[in-house]
Design a protein around this nucleic acid. Structure first.
Lengths: 206, 206
DNA sequence: GCCTGCATGTAACAAAAGTTACAAGGAACT
DNA sequence: AGTTCCTTGTAACTTTTGTTACATGCAGGC
């Protein structure tokens, strides 16, 4: 499985071998912490299966969802954190049960130097994360809460590959850093606009 | 001057020579467009002197200041944009008169592969930009407009290395994507709190 | 069936930010 | 000095978002 994914990322056979020889699989259950909370693994995660979610954390405990990481993707944050040995103020949580390939960060520099495909992958990862962050900024600066919520629902649908999102209003409020009442109010509005349908613990995207 | 700066970035002598041989100086006046508005130079800018500001742009014309780039810094966006040949939705403007060293992007991949110091520089640039973006996200999600404005003033003070900021309320409102009236209101409040002093066209940080 | 706990709905209010409109003050120019 | 333009101040109001408090409703265990 790991070979398949690495190969689909365009990696050279030799690089694939090196990655397989030096890394290991890690599995985690839904809602497990992958990064943050003191877990400063000196490793870069590549998602093999499932979905991770990346949060920005504030000292005072507030947090907000930045973006999802899907199959084949990696956490650009982790790369620079590892290279710099800096603790990051992000938190990574398993959105579903996940399988992750952990690459010890010691190899990174050598691989970037040696393998064009790895350079492409790493720079591509940065590009994707920048794009996601920019979209996050957009929705924060330029849109109201209703549109932000709708974008969140669509992003989630995309990440979990399902039209049914099993979350409570409180959980959604936490990810958007707003309050449950506001989420309930706006979901009701979206329902009246026939963009979603609601059941207990479940929102269906139409 | 360019040697001095490149050397202060920790670059090897040979790399410095290559950069000097393959790039060129570009000067721009305050308020000139460096990137955006169709200028898709296939080049990476390194700031030699002065300050650049990087905006996020929306289709509908709205925009918001993301961060400043100071001496020795580069635009991480440009790097990935060049590597991917993707048009970016950012805009870079000269905050002061500036001198910039332009590196043709064709050399990037080779240098990243060949020079450890260049890898460190590029990854460091990404790290810094991520950090700045995270702070931008923080001020958007977790703080009110007054604190956002104060952070903006302090960041600006830092970038231009002066306690006196020569901008109108309207200009500040544009950079924060809010309205002039709101800025005037909050600046008055900050003045009453003795955090700033105001004169026409000038805000003094206390 | 009947608790109990969690999830959702809703009203009423408060605070923050955005909008419109107009007044007033300074600077530059004739 | 007087005119004009740009900048800032301010009032009054609307809209959006957040808060508090309480009601309703559903699901699972006893």
């Amino acid at each position: 499985m790991i070979e398949e994914i690495l190969s689909s990322l365009g990696f050279e056979a030799q690089l694939i071998q090196e990655i397989i020889d030096s890394g290991f699989t890690k599995t985690a259950k839904k809602d497990d912490h992958i990064i943050g909370e003191g877990l400063k693994d000196k490793s870069i995660p590549i998602v093999l299966d499932g979905v991770l979610k990346v949060y920005r954390k504030e000292e005072s405990g507030n947090e907000v969802l930045l973006y999802y990481l899907e199959k084949g993707e990696t956490c650009a944050m982790s790369i620079t954190c590892c290279l710099d040995s800096k603790p990051s103020e992000v938190k990574v949580i398993a959105e579903t049960d996940v399988k992750i390939w952990m690459i010890p960060s010691a190899n990174l520099d050598r691989w970037v130097s040696k393998y064009p495909s790895f350079r492409r992958y790493v720079f591509g990862a940065y590009q994707s994360r920048f794009d996601e962050l920019m979209q996050t900024v957009d929705s924060l600066v330029f849109t109201n809460m209703e549109d932000r919520l709708l974008k969140y629902l669509l992003d989630t649908k995309q990440a979990i590959e399902s039209f049914e999102i099993h979350k409570t209003h409180q959980e959604i409020a936490d990810e958007l850093n707003t309050s449950r009442v506001v989420v309930s109010r706006l979901l009701k509005k979206l329902e009246q606009e026939s963009k979603i349908r609601q059941r207990r613990n479940c929102i269906e995207i139409l």
